[in-house]
Design a protein around this nucleic acid. Structure first.
Ligand SMILES: [Mn+2]
Ligand SMILES: [Mn+2]
Ligand SMILES: [Zn+2]
Ligand SMILES: [Zn+2]
Lengths: 178, 178
DNA sequence: GACATACAGAAAATGATTGTTATTTGACAT
DNA sequence: ATGTCAAATAACAATCATTTTCTGTATGTC
């Protein structure tokens, strides 16, 4: 694997292509899979629509709670996991302390993670060329490679400009806006 | 960034180069930083020597406990965090459920993570060429790129050969052997 | 030896997530 | 409309890794 400092393939196309199924489509899918479609599930489906902030379960819960006071965090977790099982979203552990859920499951993409506020941004770059040699693998059967770029989002970079070596503040409550 | 399917630069050199400071060096360092060097700290220093299994705090505790019955898990956590603060080890969240500590902090390296047993292996490959364009970064100030290859270690691959889509078993107690 | 730290140990708090279970509710048939 | 029944829900307890707080004791450092 040889890497030179040029642009990744297919880097420029701002192809926010196949986001996620609509609440209607998800409803249909759930029913076809023998699952029931409840108001809370529909609310969760809606909350995920067009969301590219890689929300946590807690974030989804907060959003849904605003107009559905009774929904429980447990139900949110459960439904998110079901969506993940069905392949409609993916659960990501990006080292931010909480599992983040990504509606974008179709196209191969990677992530920029702010080490200060935990914000996650998509990076549509093709690193599919990444691989390791058999000698390096030494029996390890490799699936996919995940690339995480760690750094500071614009806001955090402006706030904490010249203070190096500081510990990132304990992830304050909900951190999943873009 | 252009990636072709050749070997990564500097992939073959089995350069397990700069591992971690010796217990003596760490002792000196701790003293120079105004910290005290206690037997339990020295025991922890020793436990980390030459360790490339990315142990968890619990693992270090178990090891140290064998010949120091009184050491407490709390002290292990504390000392590991101190070592991390001093930059002598790094704390990794690789999605295995527990924080893993890596004595290897010097050379840029990446990781193979077994999605079945949580085993972590070093991958000494130079992916430093990985970068993103300013247009992609959009204000995000990128630090380093981490590449995680997920797959199955040899043992797990032999055990669970044809069963796809199974959930990894809940991390059983200590999982940090290589 | 004096002094400042570090230690153990207990206990409890934490935060994310999951298990339990009695009750409710969708989906579908009567 | 009503009934049926498995699936879903809400409330609550529990788990797990980790941190925090406290307190009396032990031990490096000078
Ligand atoms: Mn994403
Ligand atoms: Mn490593
Ligand atoms: Zn930020
Ligand atoms: Zn394994």
């Amino acid at each position: 694997m040889m890497c030179t400092n040029e642009e990744p393939q297919a880097a420029n196309q701002p192809e926010r292509v196949p986001v996620m199924k609509s609440p209607e489509e998800l409803t249909e899918l759930f029913r076809s899979m023998g699952r029931k479609v409840t108001p809370q599930r529909q609310r969760i489906f809606r909350a995920l629509q067009g969301e590219d902030s890689h929300p946590s379960a807690e974030w989804v819960y907060q959003v849904a709670s605003t107009d559905m006071e009774t929904i429980s965090l447990k139900t949110v977790y459960q439904t998110l996991h079901e969506l993940a099982e069905l392949g409609e979203i993916q659960a990501l552990d990006l080292g931010t302390g909480t599992t983040r859920f990504d509606p974008n499951v179709e196209i191969s993409h990677h992530h920029l993670v702010c080490r200060s506020c935990g914000k996650v941004r998509d990076l549509f770059a093709d690193f599919s060329g990444l691989s390791i040699s058999a000698s390096q693998a030494e029996g390890f059967v490799v699936g996919k490679a995940e690339v995480v770029f760690r750094g500071l989002c614009q806001e955090c970079h402006e706030k904490l400009p010249t203070v190096p070596g500081l510990r990132p503040p304990p992830n304050s409550s909900i951190n999943s806006q873009t």
